[in-house]
Amino acid sequence: MAEPLLEVRDLKVSFRTEDGIVRAVDGISFTVDEGEVVGIVGESGSGKSVTMMSVMRLITDPNVIYQGEILYKGRNLMQVSRDAMREVRGEEIAMIFQDPMTSLNPVYTVGWQIEEQLNEHYDLKKGQARRRASELLAQVGIPRPEQRIDDYPHQFSGGMRQRVMIALALSCNPDLLIADEPTTALDVTIQAQILELIKDLRRDFGSAVVLITHDLGVVADIADRILVMYAGRIVEEGNKEQIFYDPQHPYTWGLLGSIARLDRPKARRLTAIAGQPPSLINRPKGCSFRPRCPQAFDRCRAEDPQLTVKVGDGHLDACHLSVEDKRARRDATISPELADTA
Protein backbone atom coordinates (compact mmCIF):
# COMPACT_ATOMS: atom_id res chain seq x y z
CA MET A 1 0.00 0.00 0.00
CA ALA A 2 1.24 3.45 -0.88
CA GLU A 3 2.44 5.83 1.78
CA PRO A 4 -0.42 7.93 3.13
CA LEU A 5 -0.58 11.64 2.29
CA LEU A 6 -0.85 12.60 5.91
CA GLU A 7 -0.03 10.50 8.90
CA VAL A 8 -0.55 11.76 12.43
CA ARG A 9 1.24 9.69 15.05
CA ASP A 10 0.38 9.94 18.71
CA LEU A 11 -0.22 13.69 18.56
CA LYS A 12 -0.63 15.48 21.87
CA VAL A 13 -1.43 19.17 22.06
CA SER A 14 -1.66 20.86 25.44
CA PHE A 15 -1.99 24.42 26.64
CA ARG A 16 -0.52 25.81 29.82
CA THR A 17 -3.19 27.86 31.57
CA GLU A 18 -3.63 29.52 34.96
CA ASP A 19 -5.55 26.51 36.18
CA GLY A 20 -3.24 23.82 34.90
CA ILE A 21 -2.34 22.06 31.69
CA VAL A 22 -5.26 21.58 29.33
CA ARG A 23 -4.82 18.44 27.24
CA ALA A 24 -6.79 19.48 24.20
CA VAL A 25 -5.54 16.61 22.07
CA ASP A 26 -4.40 13.58 24.00
CA GLY A 27 -2.57 11.11 21.84
CA ILE A 28 -4.31 10.56 18.54
CA SER A 29 -3.14 8.76 15.41
CA PHE A 30 -4.74 8.59 12.01
CA THR A 31 -3.94 8.73 8.31
CA VAL A 32 -5.37 10.47 5.29
CA ASP A 33 -4.71 8.95 1.87
CA GLU A 34 -4.40 10.87 -1.35
CA GLY A 35 -7.76 11.96 -2.68
CA GLU A 36 -9.57 10.58 0.34
CA VAL A 37 -12.29 12.42 2.25
CA VAL A 38 -12.01 12.00 6.01
CA GLY A 39 -14.62 13.37 8.37
CA ILE A 40 -13.66 14.25 11.93
CA VAL A 41 -16.74 14.42 14.13
CA GLY A 42 -17.14 15.47 17.73
CA GLU A 43 -18.72 18.13 19.92
CA SER A 44 -17.02 21.46 20.65
CA GLY A 45 -13.93 21.03 22.74
CA SER A 46 -13.26 17.51 21.56
CA GLY A 47 -9.98 18.63 20.01
CA LYS A 48 -10.90 18.19 16.35
CA SER A 49 -10.04 21.76 15.32
CA VAL A 50 -6.91 21.84 17.44
CA THR A 51 -5.70 18.68 15.71
CA MET A 52 -6.01 20.14 12.23
CA MET A 53 -4.73 23.55 13.30
CA SER A 54 -1.67 21.69 14.58
CA VAL A 55 -1.20 20.07 11.18
CA MET A 56 -1.05 23.58 9.73
CA ARG A 57 0.97 24.79 12.72
CA LEU A 58 -1.46 27.66 12.98
CA ILE A 59 -1.76 27.76 16.75
CA THR A 60 -0.12 31.01 17.80
CA ASP A 61 -0.76 30.66 21.53
CA PRO A 62 2.70 30.79 23.13
CA ASN A 63 1.51 28.40 25.83
CA VAL A 64 1.01 25.50 23.46
CA ILE A 65 2.99 22.26 23.88
CA TYR A 66 3.19 19.70 21.09
CA GLN A 67 4.21 16.07 21.21
CA GLY A 68 4.14 13.42 18.51
CA GLU A 69 4.64 13.45 14.77
CA ILE A 70 2.75 14.85 11.84
CA LEU A 71 4.07 13.26 8.67
CA TYR A 72 3.04 14.93 5.45
CA LYS A 73 4.36 13.10 2.38
CA GLY A 74 6.82 11.51 4.76
CA ARG A 75 8.09 14.80 6.17
CA ASN A 76 7.55 15.58 9.86
CA LEU A 77 5.84 18.97 9.82
CA MET A 78 6.56 19.43 13.51
CA GLN A 79 10.21 19.76 12.62
CA VAL A 80 10.38 21.66 9.34
CA SER A 81 11.55 25.27 9.41
CA ARG A 82 9.12 28.16 9.52
CA ASP A 83 9.86 29.08 5.93
CA ALA A 84 9.39 25.52 4.72
CA MET A 85 6.13 25.42 6.67
CA ARG A 86 4.95 28.55 4.90
CA GLU A 87 5.47 26.83 1.57
CA VAL A 88 3.36 23.94 2.76
CA ARG A 89 0.56 26.24 3.90
CA GLY A 90 -1.67 27.33 1.09
CA GLU A 91 0.26 25.46 -1.57
CA GLU A 92 0.22 21.89 -0.21
CA ILE A 93 -2.36 22.09 2.54
CA ALA A 94 -5.11 24.68 2.48
CA MET A 95 -7.80 25.43 5.01
CA ILE A 96 -11.37 26.71 5.03
CA PHE A 97 -12.73 28.08 8.27
CA GLN A 98 -16.03 28.08 10.02
CA ASP A 99 -17.16 31.67 9.80
CA PRO A 100 -16.92 33.19 6.33
CA MET A 101 -18.07 36.51 7.84
CA THR A 102 -14.84 36.98 9.74
CA SER A 103 -12.35 34.83 7.86
CA LEU A 104 -11.76 37.28 5.04
CA ASN A 105 -9.95 40.55 5.65
CA PRO A 106 -12.60 43.29 5.49
CA VAL A 107 -10.29 45.96 4.10
CA TYR A 108 -9.14 44.18 0.94
CA THR A 109 -11.09 43.12 -2.14
CA VAL A 110 -11.63 39.39 -2.54
CA GLY A 111 -9.51 39.49 -5.70
CA TRP A 112 -6.64 41.06 -3.79
CA GLN A 113 -6.82 38.33 -1.17
CA ILE A 114 -6.72 35.52 -3.72
CA GLU A 115 -3.95 37.21 -5.71
CA GLU A 116 -1.93 37.66 -2.53
CA GLN A 117 -1.82 33.92 -2.05
CA LEU A 118 -1.02 33.23 -5.72
CA ASN A 119 1.81 35.74 -5.71
CA GLU A 120 3.18 34.27 -2.51
CA HIS A 121 3.55 30.82 -4.00
CA TYR A 122 4.06 31.40 -7.71
CA ASP A 123 6.09 33.75 -9.80
CA LEU A 124 3.28 35.34 -11.75
CA LYS A 125 3.21 38.25 -14.13
CA LYS A 126 0.90 41.15 -13.52
CA GLY A 127 -2.55 40.31 -14.76
CA GLN A 128 -1.91 36.56 -14.59
CA ALA A 129 -2.78 36.39 -10.92
CA ARG A 130 -5.89 38.43 -11.53
CA ARG A 131 -7.01 36.24 -14.39
CA ARG A 132 -6.47 33.14 -12.29
CA ALA A 133 -8.38 34.65 -9.36
CA SER A 134 -11.27 35.44 -11.66
CA GLU A 135 -11.24 31.87 -13.01
CA LEU A 136 -11.29 30.50 -9.49
CA LEU A 137 -14.27 32.66 -8.56
CA ALA A 138 -16.05 31.34 -11.63
CA GLN A 139 -15.18 27.77 -10.65
CA VAL A 140 -16.71 28.12 -7.21
CA GLY A 141 -19.89 29.41 -8.78
CA ILE A 142 -19.73 33.15 -8.24
CA PRO A 143 -21.67 34.93 -10.96
CA ARG A 144 -20.01 37.78 -12.88
CA PRO A 145 -16.55 37.05 -11.42
CA GLU A 146 -14.85 39.80 -13.46
CA GLN A 147 -16.89 42.38 -11.59
CA ARG A 148 -17.15 40.70 -8.21
CA ILE A 149 -13.37 40.34 -8.03
CA ASP A 150 -13.15 44.01 -7.04
CA ASP A 151 -15.80 43.75 -4.34
CA TYR A 152 -15.07 43.66 -0.65
CA PRO A 153 -16.07 40.69 1.52
CA HIS A 154 -18.93 42.58 3.18
CA GLN A 155 -20.56 42.96 -0.23
CA PHE A 156 -21.06 39.18 -0.44
CA SER A 157 -23.64 37.02 1.29
CA GLY A 158 -22.51 34.37 3.76
CA GLY A 159 -22.72 31.52 1.29
CA MET A 160 -20.94 33.53 -1.41
CA ARG A 161 -18.24 34.44 1.05
CA GLN A 162 -17.69 30.80 1.88
CA ARG A 163 -17.36 30.20 -1.87
CA VAL A 164 -14.71 32.90 -1.97
CA MET A 165 -12.92 31.16 0.91
CA ILE A 166 -13.01 27.91 -1.03
CA ALA A 167 -11.64 29.63 -4.14
CA LEU A 168 -8.88 31.04 -1.97
CA ALA A 169 -8.09 27.65 -0.49
CA LEU A 170 -8.01 25.92 -3.89
CA SER A 171 -6.03 28.64 -5.63
CA CYS A 172 -2.74 26.74 -5.44
CA ASN A 173 -4.17 23.26 -6.13
CA PRO A 174 -3.46 21.91 -2.64
CA ASP A 175 -3.12 18.16 -2.12
CA LEU A 176 -4.96 18.40 1.17
CA LEU A 177 -7.89 20.63 1.97
CA ILE A 178 -8.91 21.05 5.60
CA ALA A 179 -12.45 22.31 6.03
CA ASP A 180 -13.15 23.31 9.63
CA GLU A 181 -16.92 23.39 10.13
CA PRO A 182 -17.34 24.99 6.69
CA THR A 183 -21.14 25.00 6.83
CA THR A 184 -21.89 25.59 10.51
CA ALA A 185 -22.37 29.34 10.17
CA LEU A 186 -24.56 29.06 7.08
CA ASP A 187 -28.27 28.62 6.41
CA VAL A 188 -29.37 25.04 5.89
CA THR A 189 -30.10 25.46 2.17
CA ILE A 190 -26.72 27.10 1.63
CA GLN A 191 -25.01 24.33 3.63
CA ALA A 192 -26.08 21.73 1.10
CA GLN A 193 -24.82 23.87 -1.77
CA ILE A 194 -21.43 24.36 -0.15
CA LEU A 195 -21.08 20.65 0.59
CA GLU A 196 -22.02 19.87 -2.99
CA LEU A 197 -19.40 22.36 -4.16
CA ILE A 198 -16.70 20.81 -2.01
CA LYS A 199 -17.63 17.42 -3.40
CA ASP A 200 -17.47 18.60 -7.01
CA LEU A 201 -14.22 20.46 -6.55
CA ARG A 202 -12.62 17.51 -4.85
CA ARG A 203 -13.30 15.58 -8.01
CA ASP A 204 -11.93 18.34 -10.23
CA PHE A 205 -8.89 19.18 -8.15
CA GLY A 206 -8.21 15.69 -6.79
CA SER A 207 -7.38 17.01 -3.33
CA ALA A 208 -7.79 14.97 -0.21
CA VAL A 209 -10.25 16.59 2.19
CA VAL A 210 -10.45 16.54 5.96
CA LEU A 211 -13.88 17.76 6.97
CA ILE A 212 -14.26 18.80 10.59
CA THR A 213 -17.79 18.98 11.93
CA HIS A 214 -19.91 18.43 15.00
CA ASP A 215 -22.71 17.14 12.79
CA LEU A 216 -22.55 13.56 11.55
CA GLY A 217 -25.20 14.49 9.02
CA VAL A 218 -22.75 16.75 7.23
CA VAL A 219 -20.24 13.97 6.59
CA ALA A 220 -22.84 11.33 5.80
CA ASP A 221 -22.83 12.03 2.12
CA ILE A 222 -19.28 13.08 1.46
CA ALA A 223 -16.81 11.25 3.72
CA ASP A 224 -15.03 8.00 2.85
CA ARG A 225 -13.87 7.48 6.39
CA ILE A 226 -15.01 9.00 9.68
CA LEU A 227 -13.13 9.63 12.93
CA VAL A 228 -15.22 10.26 16.03
CA MET A 229 -13.41 12.32 18.64
CA TYR A 230 -14.26 12.74 22.28
CA ALA A 231 -12.28 14.68 24.90
CA GLY A 232 -9.10 14.90 22.85
CA ARG A 233 -9.09 11.29 21.70
CA ILE A 234 -10.45 9.23 18.86
CA VAL A 235 -13.12 6.91 20.22
CA GLU A 236 -14.18 5.31 16.97
CA GLU A 237 -12.89 5.15 13.45
CA GLY A 238 -14.29 3.45 10.40
CA ASN A 239 -15.69 3.90 6.93
CA LYS A 240 -19.03 5.50 6.35
CA GLU A 241 -21.01 2.27 6.32
CA GLN A 242 -19.35 1.03 9.50
CA ILE A 243 -20.00 4.22 11.42
CA PHE A 244 -23.57 4.74 10.26
CA TYR A 245 -24.80 1.17 10.20
CA ASP A 246 -22.73 -0.52 12.86
CA PRO A 247 -21.56 2.16 15.32
CA GLN A 248 -19.60 0.62 18.17
CA HIS A 249 -18.93 3.34 20.69
CA PRO A 250 -21.81 4.54 22.87
CA TYR A 251 -20.75 8.11 22.13
CA THR A 252 -21.20 7.51 18.41
CA TRP A 253 -24.65 6.08 19.10
CA GLY A 254 -25.41 9.29 20.90
CA LEU A 255 -24.26 11.38 17.97
CA LEU A 256 -26.32 9.30 15.57
CA GLY A 257 -29.34 9.52 17.82
CA SER A 258 -29.20 13.30 17.73
CA ILE A 259 -29.52 13.58 13.95
CA ALA A 260 -32.96 14.42 12.67
CA ARG A 261 -33.68 12.02 9.84
CA LEU A 262 -36.38 12.43 7.29
CA ASP A 263 -35.67 9.13 5.62
CA ARG A 264 -36.93 7.14 8.59
CA PRO A 265 -40.53 6.09 8.47
CA LYS A 266 -41.27 6.41 12.18
CA ALA A 267 -41.32 9.71 13.95
CA ARG A 268 -38.67 9.24 16.54
CA ARG A 269 -37.56 11.31 19.50
CA LEU A 270 -34.15 12.84 19.07
CA THR A 271 -31.94 11.68 21.88
CA ALA A 272 -29.48 13.95 23.58
CA ILE A 273 -26.28 12.96 25.29
CA ALA A 274 -26.67 13.87 28.95
CA GLY A 275 -24.03 15.82 30.84
CA GLN A 276 -21.04 17.91 29.90
CA PRO A 277 -17.72 17.02 28.25
CA PRO A 278 -15.07 16.33 30.87
CA SER A 279 -12.39 18.63 32.17
CA LEU A 280 -9.30 18.38 30.02
CA ILE A 281 -7.08 19.29 32.95
CA ASN A 282 -7.58 16.46 35.42
CA ARG A 283 -8.49 13.47 33.37
CA PRO A 284 -9.41 10.81 35.91
CA LYS A 285 -8.65 7.19 35.45
CA GLY A 286 -10.70 5.09 33.13
CA CYS A 287 -12.82 5.95 30.14
CA SER A 288 -13.39 9.66 29.52
CA PHE A 289 -16.94 9.06 28.41
CA ARG A 290 -17.87 6.97 31.43
CA PRO A 291 -19.65 9.75 33.44
CA ARG A 292 -22.04 10.29 30.55
CA CYS A 293 -22.29 6.73 29.40
CA PRO A 294 -25.46 4.80 30.25
CA GLN A 295 -23.65 1.55 29.52
CA ALA A 296 -20.71 2.06 31.90
CA PHE A 297 -19.64 -0.78 34.15
CA ASP A 298 -16.81 -1.41 36.62
CA ARG A 299 -14.05 -1.86 34.12
CA CYS A 300 -14.75 1.57 32.60
CA ARG A 301 -13.84 3.23 35.88
CA ALA A 302 -10.62 1.29 36.33
CA GLU A 303 -9.15 0.98 32.90
CA ASP A 304 -8.63 3.35 30.00
CA PRO A 305 -10.00 1.68 26.85
CA GLN A 306 -7.63 1.56 23.87
CA LEU A 307 -8.56 2.24 20.27
CA THR A 308 -8.32 -1.14 18.58
CA VAL A 309 -9.89 -3.16 15.80
CA LYS A 310 -12.75 -5.15 17.26
CA VAL A 311 -15.35 -5.68 14.59
CA GLY A 312 -14.02 -5.66 11.09
CA ASP A 313 -11.37 -4.35 8.77
CA GLY A 314 -10.41 -0.74 9.54
CA HIS A 315 -13.15 -0.32 12.10
CA LEU A 316 -11.61 0.72 15.41
CA ASP A 317 -13.24 1.73 18.66
CA ALA A 318 -12.32 2.41 22.25
CA CYS A 319 -14.94 0.74 24.41
CA HIS A 320 -14.69 -2.09 26.92
CA LEU A 321 -17.98 -3.69 25.97
CA SER A 322 -17.84 -6.81 23.87
CA VAL A 323 -19.07 -6.49 20.32
CA GLU A 324 -22.14 -8.61 21.02
CA ASP A 325 -22.98 -6.61 24.12
CA LYS A 326 -22.64 -3.37 22.22
CA ARG A 327 -24.86 -4.44 19.38
CA ALA A 328 -27.51 -5.76 21.70
CA ARG A 329 -27.55 -2.72 23.96
CA ARG A 330 -27.38 -0.30 21.06
CA ASP A 331 -30.30 -1.82 19.26
CA ALA A 332 -32.29 -2.04 22.46
CA THR A 333 -31.73 1.45 23.75
CA ILE A 334 -30.68 3.96 21.15
CA SER A 335 -32.42 3.32 17.88
CA PRO A 336 -34.12 0.02 17.38
CA GLU A 337 -34.69 0.63 13.70
CA LEU A 338 -30.93 0.56 13.06
CA ALA A 339 -31.13 -3.17 13.49
CA ASP A 340 -33.21 -3.49 10.33
CA THR A 341 -30.65 -1.88 8.12
CA ALA A 342 -27.49 -3.21 9.71
Binding site: T17, A24, G275, N282
Partner: peptide, 14 residues
Protein backbone atom coordinates in the same frame (compact mmCIF):
# COMPACT_ATOMS: atom_id res chain seq x y z
CA UNK B 1 -13.87 25.75 24.09
CA UNK B 2 -10.83 24.27 25.77
CA UNK B 3 -10.06 27.52 27.52
CA UNK B 4 -13.57 27.67 28.90
CA UNK B 5 -13.36 24.11 30.05
CA UNK B 6 -10.21 24.99 31.89
CA UNK B 7 -12.18 27.03 34.37
CA UNK B 8 -14.42 24.13 35.27
CA UNK B 9 -12.15 22.36 37.68
CA UNK B 10 -14.72 19.84 38.76
CA UNK B 11 -13.72 16.80 40.75
CA UNK B 12 -15.96 14.48 38.86
CA UNK B 13 -16.93 14.57 35.22
CA UNK B 14 -20.29 16.07 34.64
Amino acid sequence: PEAELATLDTEEFG
